[in-house]
Design a protein around this nucleic acid. Structure first.
Lengths: 203, 203
DNA sequence: TCATGGTTTAACCAAATGGTTAACAAAAGT
DNA sequence: ACTTTTGTTAACCATTTGGTTAAACCATGA
């Protein structure tokens, strides 16, 4: 049947995701998205009134995916410190699967902070964030950490920036006879886990 | 005199720098640059044939400034570890002064890796990089570090990402009753110095 | 079978934008 | 003085691009 068949909509969203992830809101071209989806450009506007609306959908789902990694922090069956380790693993898996995601989010958040705030309220509703969990765990004496915000920022930085600046690190590494490859990223993983162990001290 | 008076060229470069840093190569508008510089748009093309050439100049000087921070690594009067500490301080000063710089460089490097490689060859000629210094120091037994490349990546990540993702951290922090402000960045500084002390062990 | 309404397209439009041209103004050279 | 070179401008041009329109297509229910 034709009515409920939203395969076109799906194709469009996939194409838009690819294009927006690569070129961002302003760099992306509606014509390219139409081409990728194998449809006419006018059809884009039929399904998603305009570029911003379409971008909105992609951005929202990207954000949701990003923050969904933090769900694990509310799993009370696990030891707190264990949760942080698992979160980092999930987060790194996520970034390895979508290497462009980090830079995409940063670019768009910087370009339109207001939209980000709005979306965060929406997609994060009910979810607990890592920072919130850290603050609560410290306040309730579950864990000892000297500065939760600083720990949070450094942890996220060590996880994310290597992917954000991958081209830069790749070039610099290769110019010095080493390689910033997946083996190096594996080493990075264990190093980050060490960092967690050193900074979070159970009481 | 008129001939040698290149104040117009300087005004253009300043205006271009501001515009490009904020909007990047594609987001920047030649008309805006002309307005900022208080001149006619055609004059831009008179001084710098086209947008890319103008961008090139700005990008090159940004890169040069970025890498010039590493000069200190070749100052043999100082203890090696001390050099790294100083380098980080200089680097953080630099990023505090030009907070948009990091994201700007990352964006443009990702968008045009080839241009970056070309520019690096040029601006880095003769300069020693941090990574190279680390590798050499380890090989010559000056210092012990378990994985120079990893140390390098994590150090740069901890220094840079907080500035790259400043809007993100600011929003998340404020939503949790804390503040990602200059005081927090000061705390970050000392934490990074601790990181260096733990990772680099003089022999 | 044919009228209906959701789906898809080709052709078109208006605005934005990088770049050009021709003319003019100001210095510098002679 | 006057000619040549350099600096500057307003008006214009070609292309790109997001968005619109009117017509065609096609599955379905009467």
């Amino acid at each position: 049947m034709k009515l409920i068949d939203s395969s076109t909509e799906h194709k469009i969203l996939e194409a838009a995701k690819t294009e927006f992830l690569e070129f961002g809101l302003y760099g992306a071209r509606m014509q390219n998205i139409a081409n990728r989806a194998g449809i006419n450009k006018a059809l884009l506007h039929y399904y998603f009134r305009n570029k911003e609306k379409l971008f909105d959908k992609v951005f929202e789902s990207a954000l949701e995916r990003y923050f969904s990694n933090m769900d694990i922090m509310s799993d009370n069956r696990l030891d707190f410190k264990e949760r942080v380790h698992l979160l980092v693993d999930r987060f790194l898996d996520f970034l390895e699967e979508y290497p462009q995601m980090a830079l995409f989010l940063i670019k768009e958040v910087s370009a339109n902070e207001a939209l980000f705030i709005e979306k965060v309220e929406k997609s994060q509703k009910g979810n607990i964030t890592l920072l919130k969990a850290l603050l609560e765990a410290r306040d309730s004496g579950v864990i000892s950490v000297q500065d939760p915000l600083l720990f949070f920022v450094q942890l996220i930085s060590m996880c994310t920036y290597p992917f954000v600046a991958k081209p830069l690190f790749t070039v610099i590494a290769s110019r010095n006879g080493t390689n910033w490859n997946s083996a190096a990223i594996k080493a990075m993983r264990t190093s980050i886990h060490n960092f967690i162990d050193h900074q979070l001290n159970p009481i």
